[in-house]
Nucleic acid binder design. Sequence first.
DNA 1: GCGCCGCATTGAAAATTTTCAATCGCGGTC
DNA 2: GACCGCGATTGAAAATTTTCAATGCGGCGC
Lengths: 233, 233
Amino acid sequence: MKNRTIESAWRGAERCKNCAIRHLVLFADLTHDDFDRIHHPIDDIEFKPGSRVYLQGDEMPFVYTVRSGLIKLVQHLPNGDRRIVRILSQGDLAGLENLDGQPASHEAVTMDHVRVCRIPRSIIASLKRDTPRLHDALLQRWQKALSGADNWITRLSTGNARSRVARLLLLLDENSEDDSFFLPTREDMGAMLGITTESASKMTAGFRRNGLLKPLEDHRAWIDERELKKQFD
Amino acid sequence: MKNRTIESAWRGAERCKNCAIRHLVLFADLTHDDFDRIHHPIDDIEFKPGSRVYLQGDEMPFVYTVRSGLIKLVQHLPNGDRRIVRILSQGDLAGLENLDGQPASHEAVTMDHVRVCRIPRSIIASLKRDTPRLHDALLQRWQKALSGADNWITRLSTGNARSRVARLLLLLDENSEDDSFFLPTREDMGAMLGITTESASKMTAGFRRNGLLKPLEDHRAWIDERELKKQFD
DNA sequence: GCGCCGCATTGAAAATTTTCAATCGCGGTC
DNA sequence: GACCGCGATTGAAAATTTTCAATGCGGCGC
Protein backbone atom coordinates (compact mmCIF):
# COMPACT_ATOMS: atom_id res chain seq x y z
CA MET A 1 0.00 0.00 0.00
CA LYS A 2 2.13 2.82 -1.25
CA ASN A 3 0.79 6.29 -0.99
CA ARG A 4 3.39 7.82 -3.18
CA THR A 5 4.34 7.35 -6.79
CA ILE A 6 7.56 8.20 -8.52
CA GLU A 7 6.62 10.03 -11.62
CA SER A 8 9.99 10.32 -13.16
CA ALA A 9 13.65 10.16 -12.34
CA TRP A 10 16.62 11.10 -14.34
CA ARG A 11 20.33 11.30 -13.96
CA GLY A 12 21.74 14.73 -13.65
CA ALA A 13 19.38 17.62 -13.81
CA GLU A 14 18.46 17.98 -17.44
CA ARG A 15 14.88 18.72 -16.69
CA CYS A 16 15.59 21.04 -13.80
CA LYS A 17 16.76 23.58 -16.32
CA ASN A 18 13.32 23.66 -17.87
CA CYS A 19 11.31 23.23 -14.68
CA ALA A 20 8.07 25.20 -14.86
CA ILE A 21 8.52 26.62 -11.38
CA ARG A 22 12.25 26.97 -11.53
CA HIS A 23 12.09 30.64 -10.64
CA LEU A 24 10.63 29.63 -7.28
CA VAL A 25 12.94 26.85 -6.31
CA LEU A 26 16.31 26.44 -4.73
CA PHE A 27 18.01 26.12 -8.08
CA ALA A 28 16.58 29.34 -9.48
CA ASP A 29 19.89 31.11 -9.91
CA LEU A 30 22.11 28.25 -10.95
CA THR A 31 23.91 28.45 -14.27
CA HIS A 32 24.11 25.74 -16.87
CA ASP A 33 27.57 24.95 -15.61
CA ASP A 34 26.20 24.44 -12.14
CA PHE A 35 23.62 21.99 -13.39
CA ASP A 36 26.30 20.02 -15.10
CA ARG A 37 27.83 19.39 -11.72
CA ILE A 38 24.75 17.44 -10.64
CA HIS A 39 25.47 13.76 -10.97
CA HIS A 40 22.76 12.18 -8.90
CA PRO A 41 19.18 11.50 -9.79
CA ILE A 42 16.51 13.95 -8.78
CA ASP A 43 13.11 12.27 -8.54
CA ASP A 44 9.77 13.84 -9.12
CA ILE A 45 7.40 12.29 -6.58
CA GLU A 46 3.68 12.53 -5.93
CA PHE A 47 2.04 11.94 -2.59
CA LYS A 48 -1.56 11.31 -1.70
CA PRO A 49 -3.10 13.47 1.04
CA GLY A 50 -1.98 12.34 4.49
CA SER A 51 1.25 10.68 3.34
CA ARG A 52 4.28 10.89 5.57
CA VAL A 53 7.25 12.29 3.68
CA TYR A 54 9.54 11.62 6.62
CA LEU A 55 9.32 10.95 10.33
CA GLN A 56 10.74 12.72 13.35
CA GLY A 57 14.09 11.06 14.01
CA ASP A 58 14.62 9.86 10.43
CA GLU A 59 17.97 10.10 8.80
CA MET A 60 17.61 12.55 5.95
CA PRO A 61 19.49 11.66 2.78
CA PHE A 62 17.20 13.95 0.79
CA VAL A 63 15.59 17.33 0.83
CA TYR A 64 12.32 18.00 -0.95
CA THR A 65 11.28 20.99 -2.97
CA VAL A 66 7.53 21.46 -2.88
CA ARG A 67 6.19 21.78 -6.44
CA SER A 68 2.52 21.88 -5.49
CA GLY A 69 0.32 21.17 -2.50
CA LEU A 70 0.86 21.73 1.22
CA ILE A 71 3.04 19.86 3.71
CA LYS A 72 2.70 20.21 7.47
CA LEU A 73 5.69 19.95 9.80
CA VAL A 74 4.63 18.29 13.04
CA GLN A 75 6.57 18.09 16.26
CA HIS A 76 5.72 15.55 18.95
CA LEU A 77 6.15 16.15 22.65
CA PRO A 78 7.18 13.31 24.95
CA ASN A 79 3.76 13.43 26.62
CA GLY A 80 2.04 12.70 23.32
CA ASP A 81 0.91 16.21 22.51
CA ARG A 82 1.70 17.30 19.03
CA ARG A 83 1.90 20.64 17.35
CA ILE A 84 2.12 21.74 13.75
CA VAL A 85 4.95 24.25 13.57
CA ARG A 86 5.00 25.22 9.93
CA ILE A 87 3.23 24.74 6.61
CA LEU A 88 5.33 24.35 3.49
CA SER A 89 3.99 25.38 0.12
CA GLN A 90 5.25 25.86 -3.42
CA GLY A 91 8.95 26.62 -3.55
CA ASP A 92 9.63 25.71 0.09
CA LEU A 93 12.20 23.16 1.05
CA ALA A 94 11.30 20.25 3.34
CA GLY A 95 14.34 19.00 5.21
CA LEU A 96 16.12 22.34 5.24
CA GLU A 97 16.64 21.94 8.98
CA ASN A 98 18.52 18.72 8.42
CA LEU A 99 20.94 19.73 5.69
CA ASP A 100 23.72 19.37 8.24
CA GLY A 101 23.00 15.68 8.65
CA GLN A 102 21.01 15.82 11.85
CA PRO A 103 18.04 13.45 12.02
CA ALA A 104 14.69 15.03 11.25
CA SER A 105 13.34 17.22 14.01
CA HIS A 106 9.83 17.10 12.58
CA GLU A 107 7.44 14.75 10.94
CA ALA A 108 6.42 15.94 7.46
CA VAL A 109 2.92 15.01 6.30
CA THR A 110 1.10 16.03 3.16
CA MET A 111 -2.18 17.88 3.69
CA ASP A 112 -3.48 17.48 0.16
CA HIS A 113 -2.18 16.08 -3.09
CA VAL A 114 1.50 16.98 -3.17
CA ARG A 115 4.23 16.92 -5.76
CA VAL A 116 7.85 17.31 -4.72
CA CYS A 117 11.30 17.03 -6.20
CA ARG A 118 13.47 14.79 -4.10
CA ILE A 119 17.03 16.06 -4.10
CA PRO A 120 19.92 14.07 -2.63
CA ARG A 121 21.63 16.00 0.12
CA SER A 122 24.95 15.27 -1.52
CA ILE A 123 23.97 17.50 -4.43
CA ILE A 124 23.34 20.41 -2.14
CA ALA A 125 26.58 19.76 -0.31
CA SER A 126 28.69 19.74 -3.45
CA LEU A 127 26.97 22.71 -5.05
CA LYS A 128 27.33 24.59 -1.82
CA ARG A 129 31.07 24.26 -2.05
CA ASP A 130 31.22 25.60 -5.55
CA THR A 131 28.49 28.13 -6.09
CA PRO A 132 27.73 31.15 -3.98
CA ARG A 133 24.44 31.43 -5.84
CA LEU A 134 23.15 28.41 -4.01
CA HIS A 135 24.33 29.87 -0.74
CA ASP A 136 22.14 32.87 -1.15
CA ALA A 137 19.18 30.77 -2.15
CA LEU A 138 19.65 28.68 0.99
CA LEU A 139 19.97 31.74 3.19
CA GLN A 140 16.71 33.03 1.79
CA ARG A 141 15.06 29.76 2.70
CA TRP A 142 16.36 29.96 6.25
CA GLN A 143 15.17 33.49 6.52
CA LYS A 144 11.72 32.66 5.29
CA ALA A 145 11.44 29.65 7.58
CA LEU A 146 12.46 31.68 10.60
CA SER A 147 10.16 34.59 9.95
CA GLY A 148 7.42 32.06 9.32
CA ALA A 149 8.11 30.50 12.70
CA ASP A 150 8.04 33.88 14.40
CA ASN A 151 4.71 34.69 12.80
CA TRP A 152 3.43 31.33 13.91
CA ILE A 153 4.22 32.32 17.48
CA THR A 154 2.92 35.86 17.45
CA ARG A 155 -0.07 35.49 15.19
CA LEU A 156 -1.19 31.90 15.59
CA SER A 157 -0.33 31.16 19.20
CA THR A 158 -1.40 34.40 20.85
CA GLY A 159 -4.83 35.66 21.88
CA ASN A 160 -8.10 33.81 22.21
CA ALA A 161 -9.26 30.97 20.02
CA ARG A 162 -11.41 33.20 17.82
CA SER A 163 -8.52 35.53 16.93
CA ARG A 164 -6.21 32.64 16.29
CA VAL A 165 -8.58 30.98 13.87
CA ALA A 166 -9.17 34.31 12.15
CA ARG A 167 -5.45 34.94 11.75
CA LEU A 168 -4.92 31.42 10.46
CA LEU A 169 -7.59 31.93 7.82
CA LEU A 170 -6.01 35.22 6.80
CA LEU A 171 -2.61 33.57 6.59
CA LEU A 172 -3.88 30.70 4.47
CA ASP A 173 -5.67 33.17 2.25
CA GLU A 174 -2.58 35.34 1.76
CA ASN A 175 -0.41 32.39 0.87
CA SER A 176 -2.81 31.21 -1.78
CA GLU A 177 -2.42 32.31 -5.37
CA ASP A 178 -6.05 31.75 -5.83
CA ASP A 179 -9.04 33.68 -4.61
CA SER A 180 -9.85 30.63 -2.51
CA PHE A 181 -7.57 28.59 -0.27
CA PHE A 182 -7.17 25.15 1.21
CA LEU A 183 -9.07 24.82 4.48
CA PRO A 184 -7.41 22.23 6.76
CA THR A 185 -9.32 19.77 8.90
CA ARG A 186 -10.39 21.12 12.26
CA GLU A 187 -7.96 18.75 13.88
CA ASP A 188 -5.07 20.24 11.93
CA MET A 189 -6.27 23.74 12.62
CA GLY A 190 -6.30 22.91 16.32
CA ALA A 191 -2.77 21.50 16.12
CA MET A 192 -1.60 24.66 14.39
CA LEU A 193 -3.20 26.97 16.92
CA GLY A 194 -2.68 25.08 20.14
CA ILE A 195 -6.41 24.64 20.76
CA THR A 196 -8.69 21.60 20.66
CA THR A 197 -10.31 20.27 17.53
CA GLU A 198 -13.69 21.20 18.96
CA SER A 199 -12.68 24.77 19.64
CA ALA A 200 -11.34 25.11 16.12
CA SER A 201 -14.63 23.74 14.86
CA LYS A 202 -16.73 26.09 16.96
CA MET A 203 -14.85 29.16 15.83
CA THR A 204 -14.85 28.09 12.19
CA ALA A 205 -18.55 27.34 12.28
CA GLY A 206 -19.12 30.73 13.89
CA PHE A 207 -17.36 32.50 11.05
CA ARG A 208 -19.39 30.53 8.57
CA ARG A 209 -22.62 31.61 10.26
CA ASN A 210 -21.45 35.23 10.15
CA GLY A 211 -20.82 34.94 6.45
CA LEU A 212 -17.12 35.66 6.93
CA LEU A 213 -16.18 32.20 5.69
CA LYS A 214 -17.70 30.25 2.84
CA PRO A 215 -16.68 26.64 2.35
CA LEU A 216 -16.27 25.65 -1.28
CA GLU A 217 -15.90 22.31 -2.95
CA ASP A 218 -12.93 20.10 -2.27
CA HIS A 219 -11.68 21.35 1.10
CA ARG A 220 -11.32 24.86 -0.16
CA ALA A 221 -12.88 28.02 1.21
CA TRP A 222 -13.28 31.75 0.75
CA ILE A 223 -13.11 34.48 3.40
CA ASP A 224 -14.25 38.06 3.63
CA GLU A 225 -10.71 39.25 3.99
CA ARG A 226 -11.49 42.89 4.55
CA GLU A 227 -13.99 42.23 7.31
CA LEU A 228 -11.84 39.59 9.03
CA LYS A 229 -8.88 41.95 8.98
CA LYS A 230 -10.97 44.72 10.43
CA GLN A 231 -12.14 42.58 13.32
CA PHE A 232 -8.85 40.92 14.05
CA ASP A 233 -5.48 41.81 12.50
CA MET B 1 19.59 59.47 30.00
CA LYS B 2 21.61 56.80 28.26
CA ASN B 3 21.14 53.25 29.32
CA ARG B 4 24.13 51.96 27.47
CA THR B 5 27.83 52.63 27.66
CA ILE B 6 30.47 52.02 25.08
CA GLU B 7 33.25 50.26 26.83
CA SER B 8 35.74 50.22 24.05
CA ALA B 9 36.02 50.58 20.34
CA TRP B 10 38.83 49.82 18.04
CA ARG B 11 39.56 49.87 14.39
CA GLY B 12 39.85 46.51 12.75
CA ALA B 13 39.47 43.49 14.93
CA GLU B 14 42.67 43.27 16.89
CA ARG B 15 40.96 42.32 20.07
CA CYS B 16 38.57 39.90 18.44
CA LYS B 17 41.47 37.53 18.00
CA ASN B 18 41.93 37.37 21.73
CA CYS B 19 38.29 37.54 22.73
CA ALA B 20 37.62 35.41 25.80
CA ILE B 21 34.50 33.86 24.27
CA ARG B 22 35.77 33.72 20.75
CA HIS B 23 35.10 29.99 20.52
CA LEU B 24 31.40 30.80 20.96
CA VAL B 25 31.01 33.66 18.57
CA LEU B 26 30.44 34.16 14.90
CA PHE B 27 34.13 34.72 14.28
CA ALA B 28 35.21 31.50 15.93
CA ASP B 29 36.72 29.93 12.84
CA LEU B 30 38.21 32.93 11.11
CA THR B 31 41.91 32.98 10.37
CA HIS B 32 44.29 35.81 11.04
CA ASP B 33 44.04 36.75 7.39
CA ASP B 34 40.30 37.01 7.71
CA PHE B 35 40.61 39.36 10.63
CA ASP B 36 42.91 41.57 8.65
CA ARG B 37 40.07 42.14 6.23
CA ILE B 38 38.03 43.86 8.90
CA HIS B 39 38.34 47.58 8.44
CA HIS B 40 35.48 48.93 10.47
CA PRO B 41 35.28 49.46 14.19
CA ILE B 42 33.66 46.81 16.35
CA ASP B 43 32.37 48.30 19.58
CA ASP B 44 32.02 46.57 22.89
CA ILE B 45 28.81 47.86 24.46
CA GLU B 46 27.11 47.40 27.81
CA PHE B 47 23.40 47.75 28.41
CA LYS B 48 21.47 48.15 31.61
CA PRO B 49 18.52 45.80 32.20
CA GLY B 50 15.49 46.83 30.16
CA SER B 51 17.43 48.70 27.47
CA ARG B 52 16.22 48.56 23.92
CA VAL B 53 18.97 47.42 21.61
CA TYR B 54 16.81 48.08 18.57
CA LEU B 55 13.15 48.57 17.70
CA GLN B 56 10.80 46.76 15.37
CA GLY B 57 11.06 48.56 12.06
CA ASP B 58 14.55 49.96 12.66
CA GLU B 59 17.10 49.98 9.93
CA MET B 60 19.86 47.64 11.02
CA PRO B 61 23.38 48.76 10.20
CA PHE B 62 24.75 46.44 12.88
CA VAL B 63 24.42 42.98 14.28
CA TYR B 64 25.20 42.21 17.90
CA THR B 65 27.01 39.25 19.38
CA VAL B 66 25.84 38.56 22.91
CA ARG B 67 28.85 38.33 25.23
CA SER B 68 26.88 37.99 28.45
CA GLY B 69 23.33 38.46 29.71
CA LEU B 70 19.99 37.77 28.06
CA ILE B 71 18.13 39.65 25.32
CA LYS B 72 14.45 39.12 24.52
CA LEU B 73 13.11 39.44 20.99
CA VAL B 74 9.62 40.90 21.11
CA GLN B 75 7.11 41.06 18.30
CA HIS B 76 4.17 43.44 18.41
CA LEU B 77 0.81 42.72 16.87
CA PRO B 78 -1.24 45.51 15.28
CA ASN B 79 -3.83 45.15 18.05
CA GLY B 80 -1.25 45.92 20.74
CA ASP B 81 -0.63 42.37 21.92
CA ARG B 82 2.98 41.46 22.16
CA ARG B 83 4.83 38.19 22.32
CA ILE B 84 8.40 37.27 23.16
CA VAL B 85 9.54 34.92 20.41
CA ARG B 86 13.10 34.13 21.43
CA ILE B 87 15.70 34.65 24.11
CA LEU B 88 19.27 35.28 23.04
CA SER B 89 22.16 34.32 25.26
CA GLN B 90 25.93 34.06 25.08
CA GLY B 91 27.18 33.52 21.56
CA ASP B 92 23.86 34.32 19.89
CA LEU B 93 23.54 36.97 17.23
CA ALA B 94 20.94 39.72 17.53
CA GLY B 95 19.97 41.05 14.13
CA LEU B 96 20.64 37.81 12.29
CA GLU B 97 17.20 38.08 10.72
CA ASN B 98 18.09 41.41 9.19
CA LEU B 99 21.46 40.66 7.64
CA ASP B 100 19.83 41.06 4.25
CA GLY B 101 19.04 44.68 4.94
CA GLN B 102 15.41 44.30 5.90
CA PRO B 103 14.25 46.49 8.78
CA ALA B 104 14.09 44.76 12.15
CA SER B 105 11.19 42.38 12.55
CA HIS B 106 11.52 42.36 16.34
CA GLU B 107 12.25 44.66 19.18
CA ALA B 108 15.34 43.57 21.13
CA VAL B 109 15.35 44.37 24.85
CA THR B 110 17.88 43.37 27.48
CA MET B 111 16.53 41.34 30.38
CA ASP B 112 19.49 41.80 32.68
CA HIS B 113 22.89 43.41 32.44
CA VAL B 114 24.08 42.70 28.92
CA ARG B 115 27.35 43.03 27.07
CA VAL B 116 27.45 42.81 23.30
CA CYS B 117 29.86 43.34 20.45
CA ARG B 118 28.34 45.61 17.85
CA ILE B 119 29.47 44.53 14.40
CA PRO B 120 28.79 46.62 11.28
CA ARG B 121 26.78 44.66 8.77
CA SER B 122 29.27 45.64 6.10
CA ILE B 123 31.89 43.48 7.82
CA ILE B 124 29.66 40.44 7.63
CA ALA B 125 28.83 41.20 4.03
CA SER B 126 32.44 41.47 2.95
CA LEU B 127 33.62 38.48 4.95
CA LYS B 128 30.74 36.48 3.59
CA ARG B 129 32.03 37.02 0.11
CA ASP B 130 35.50 35.86 0.94
CA THR B 131 35.39 33.19 3.59
CA PRO B 132 33.32 30.04 3.58
CA ARG B 133 34.13 29.66 7.25
CA LEU B 134 31.84 32.54 8.06
CA HIS B 135 29.16 31.00 5.92
CA ASP B 136 29.10 27.90 8.02
CA ALA B 137 29.08 29.89 11.22
CA LEU B 138 26.09 31.84 9.94
CA LEU B 139 24.27 28.71 8.86
CA GLN B 140 24.72 27.32 12.35
CA ARG B 141 23.18 30.46 13.77
CA TRP B 142 20.18 30.17 11.46
CA GLN B 143 19.78 26.56 12.37
CA LYS B 144 19.89 27.26 16.07
CA ALA B 145 17.46 30.15 15.78
CA LEU B 146 14.98 28.05 13.83
CA SER B 147 15.09 25.04 16.11
CA GLY B 148 14.76 27.44 19.01
CA ALA B 149 11.64 28.89 17.41
CA ASP B 150 10.18 25.45 16.84
CA ASN B 151 10.75 24.53 20.46
CA TRP B 152 9.15 27.77 21.48
CA ILE B 153 6.03 26.69 19.63
CA THR B 154 5.87 23.07 20.74
CA ARG B 155 7.11 23.39 24.30
CA LEU B 156 6.21 26.89 25.38
CA SER B 157 2.98 27.52 23.49
CA THR B 158 1.27 24.17 23.90
CA GLY B 159 -0.67 22.68 26.81
CA ASN B 160 -2.06 24.35 29.90
CA ALA B 161 -0.45 27.19 31.78
CA ARG B 162 1.12 24.93 34.41
CA SER B 163 2.94 22.81 31.83
CA ARG B 164 4.09 25.84 29.92
CA VAL B 165 5.60 27.47 32.96
CA ALA B 166 7.24 24.18 33.93
CA ARG B 167 8.76 23.77 30.48
CA LEU B 168 9.96 27.37 30.48
CA LEU B 169 11.70 26.83 33.80
CA LEU B 170 13.31 23.67 32.48
CA LEU B 171 14.44 25.49 29.36
CA LEU B 172 15.92 28.37 31.31
CA ASP B 173 17.64 25.91 33.58
CA GLU B 174 19.15 23.92 30.73
CA ASN B 175 20.49 27.01 29.03
CA SER B 176 22.24 28.17 32.16
CA GLU B 177 25.84 27.22 32.82
CA ASP B 178 25.16 27.64 36.42
CA ASP B 179 23.23 25.52 38.85
CA SER B 180 20.81 28.43 39.08
CA PHE B 181 19.23 30.49 36.32
CA PHE B 182 17.77 33.90 35.60
CA LEU B 183 14.06 34.00 36.45
CA PRO B 184 12.26 36.58 34.31
CA THR B 185 9.53 38.85 35.57
CA ARG B 186 6.06 37.31 35.54
CA GLU B 187 5.11 39.73 32.82
CA ASP B 188 7.90 38.48 30.59
CA MET B 189 7.09 34.87 31.41
CA GLY B 190 3.52 35.57 30.37
CA ALA B 191 4.68 37.15 27.11
CA MET B 192 6.84 34.14 26.40
CA LEU B 193 4.08 31.64 27.07
CA GLY B 194 1.07 33.43 25.69
CA ILE B 195 -0.66 33.64 29.08
CA THR B 196 -1.42 36.55 31.38
CA THR B 197 1.00 37.92 33.91
CA GLU B 198 -1.30 36.77 36.69
CA SER B 199 -1.46 33.22 35.38
CA ALA B 200 2.32 33.10 35.16
CA SER B 201 2.46 34.35 38.71
CA LYS B 202 -0.05 31.82 40.00
CA MET B 203 1.77 28.88 38.42
CA THR B 204 5.17 30.12 39.56
CA ALA B 205 3.94 30.69 43.09
CA GLY B 206 2.43 27.21 43.04
CA PHE B 207 5.75 25.63 42.14
CA ARG B 208 7.41 27.61 44.89
CA ARG B 209 4.90 26.32 47.43
CA ASN B 210 5.53 22.76 46.22
CA GLY B 211 9.25 23.21 46.73
CA LEU B 212 9.91 22.66 43.03
CA LEU B 213 11.18 26.22 42.63
CA LYS B 214 13.35 28.20 44.99
CA PRO B 215 13.94 31.88 44.30
CA LEU B 216 17.48 33.03 45.03
CA GLU B 217 19.00 36.44 45.29
CA ASP B 218 19.12 38.77 42.31
CA HIS B 219 16.33 37.46 40.09
CA ARG B 220 17.83 34.01 40.01
CA ALA B 221 16.22 30.72 40.96
CA TRP B 222 16.74 27.02 41.35
CA ILE B 223 14.41 24.20 40.32
CA ASP B 224 14.02 20.55 41.20
CA GLU B 225 14.79 19.54 37.66
CA ARG B 226 14.22 15.84 38.12
CA GLU B 227 10.80 16.25 39.69
CA LEU B 228 9.67 18.92 37.21
CA LYS B 229 10.72 16.71 34.33
CA LYS B 230 8.87 13.78 35.80
CA GLN B 231 5.64 15.76 36.10
CA PHE B 232 5.87 17.52 32.79
CA ASP B 233 8.44 17.06 30.01
C1' DG C 1 12.87 55.51 59.43
C1' DC C 2 9.16 56.61 56.18
C1' DG C 3 6.80 56.66 52.13
C1' DC C 4 6.66 55.34 47.52
C1' DC C 5 6.96 52.56 43.51
C1' DG C 6 7.15 48.55 40.90
C1' DC C 7 6.46 43.93 40.86
C1' DA C 8 4.45 39.67 42.82
C1' DT C 9 0.74 37.42 44.90
C1' DT C 10 -3.88 36.30 45.90
C1' DG C 11 -9.00 35.93 45.68
C1' DA C 12 -13.45 35.94 43.57
C1' DA C 13 -16.29 36.48 39.65
C1' DA C 14 -16.60 36.39 34.68
C1' DA C 15 -15.21 34.56 30.43
C1' DT C 16 -13.18 31.18 27.73
C1' DT C 17 -11.77 26.70 26.68
C1' DT C 18 -11.87 21.85 27.26
C1' DT C 19 -14.17 17.63 27.84
C1' DC C 20 -17.41 14.29 26.78
C1' DA C 21 -21.07 12.73 24.38
C1' DA C 22 -24.55 13.02 20.95
C1' DT C 23 -25.89 14.20 16.39
C1' DC C 24 -25.34 15.64 11.65
C1' DG C 25 -23.86 15.33 6.77
C1' DC C 26 -21.76 13.47 3.17
C1' DG C 27 -19.25 10.40 0.20
C1' DG C 28 -18.57 5.82 -0.82
C1' DT C 29 -19.95 0.79 -0.47
C1' DC C 30 -22.75 -3.01 -0.82
C1' DG D 1 -31.49 2.97 -1.85
C1' DA D 2 -29.89 1.64 2.77
C1' DC D 3 -25.87 1.60 5.50
C1' DC D 4 -21.23 2.87 7.26
C1' DG D 5 -17.63 5.67 8.70
C1' DC D 6 -15.27 9.77 9.22
C1' DG D 7 -15.04 14.34 10.07
C1' DA D 8 -17.70 18.47 11.50
C1' DT D 9 -20.87 20.43 14.52
C1' DT D 10 -23.27 21.28 18.66
C1' DG D 11 -24.63 21.33 23.63
C1' DA D 12 -23.94 21.15 28.49
C1' DA D 13 -21.05 20.58 32.35
C1' DA D 14 -16.40 20.84 34.12
C1' DA D 15 -12.01 22.87 34.18
C1' DT D 16 -9.01 26.47 33.16
C1' DT D 17 -7.81 31.07 32.32
C1' DT D 18 -8.64 35.89 32.43
C1' DT D 19 -10.11 39.92 34.59
C1' DC D 20 -10.24 43.18 38.08
C1' DA D 21 -9.17 44.66 42.33
C1' DA D 22 -6.87 44.36 46.63
C1' DT D 23 -2.88 43.35 49.28
C1' DG D 24 1.94 42.13 50.19
C1' DC D 25 6.79 42.83 49.79
C1' DG D 26 11.36 44.93 48.96
C1' DG D 27 14.32 48.27 47.64
C1' DC D 28 15.34 53.07 47.10
C1' DG D 29 15.37 58.00 47.77
C1' DC D 30 14.96 61.42 50.97
